[in-house]
């Protein structure tokens, strides 16, 4: 927390600017989701409505897969919950960083707490207090474009002839890898990644998707807890300062 907080307007604009590369990276997924939704038999309204209310790409894709068959509704809801279960961890980690917000700001903030929103906010929290204006500028842009892309994808998705040739199926892992890579200086990075990777792959092969996300994450987090914080804190790394809260 070295830099002073930004003014609300400057914060909002800074949030929008920061969202642009994220928006560019997830645009293909918004369009892809819309196209798949239309292909699954959702109306353009339903496809857009799902993006506007759930706002979680991976869970929406899983929902689509299940809409297709004769899967009971409660099981679809449960699967969406399982894919989004990681947000519980995001919420717990982000909560202490936004306690200076007003209650309604927090209620809005939770709604747009997506993967990139969380990653960017945690990076921001390392540098300066997370301002609501910045968070809202970031989140609103990502949200607005996600809903728009879903609509466009559902409306015009049939025009994409060969999504595989454009690598659409691997864009999401590639993007998540980039975000993961940004955290590599946060110790103990490699033990966490090793445990999560092993846990998620094993879970994928045994229990199956979407539980590999929660199970893998628990393996990584457990590793971090086992390693723990040093008993007597040695010279504090910069990011450890925030732990006094």
């Amino acid at each position: 927390m070295t830099a002073p907080p930004l003014s609300p307007a400057a914060g909002f604009v800074a949030g929008i600017v920061r969202s642009l590369p994220i928006c560019a990276a997830i645009a293909p997924f918004g369009l892809l989701y819309g196209a798949l939704a239309a292909d699954t038999g959702l109306s353009v309204f339903e496809a857009t409505f799902m993006s506007a209310t759930i706002f979680g790409g991976a869970s929406q894709m899983v929902g689509l897969q299940l809409f297709d068959g004769r899967v009971p509704g409660w099981l679809i809801v449960l699967s969406i919950f399982a894919v989004n279960f990681r947000h519980i961890l995001y919420s717990a980690a982000l909560g202490p960083k936004i306690m200076h917000w007003r209650p309604w700001q927090r209620l809005v903030g939770w709604f747009v707490l997506s993967d990139p929103q969380f990653a960017e906010s945690m990076k921001m929290a390392d540098k300066r207090p997370v301002a609501f204006s910045w968070y809202f500028g970031l989140g609103l842009t990502i949200y607005g474009l996600w809903v728009l892309e879903s609509y466009l994808g559902a409306r015009f998705g049939a025009l994409i002839e060969d999504p595989e040739a454009l690598g659409l199926d691997f864009m999401l892992p590639l993007y998540f890898f980039g975000m993961l890579y940004d955290f590599r200086s946060r110790k103990p990075f490699f033990p966490i990644v090793g445990a999560s990777a092993a846990g998620s792959v094993l879970a994928m092969l045994t229990v199956g998707s979407p539980w590999h996300v929660s199970i893998g994450a628990i393996c990584g987090i457990a590793t971090a807890i086992l390693i723990g914080a040093p008993e007597a804190p040695p010279p504090m790394p910069p990011e450890a300062k925030e732990r006094t809260t």
């Binding site: 990681r86 945690m122 393996c219």
Partner: peptide
Amino acid sequence: AVPAAVLTTLVAP
């Protein structure tokens, strides 16, 4: 550890 742990599960499999 949450961000790294979760992001890994979205990449590794």
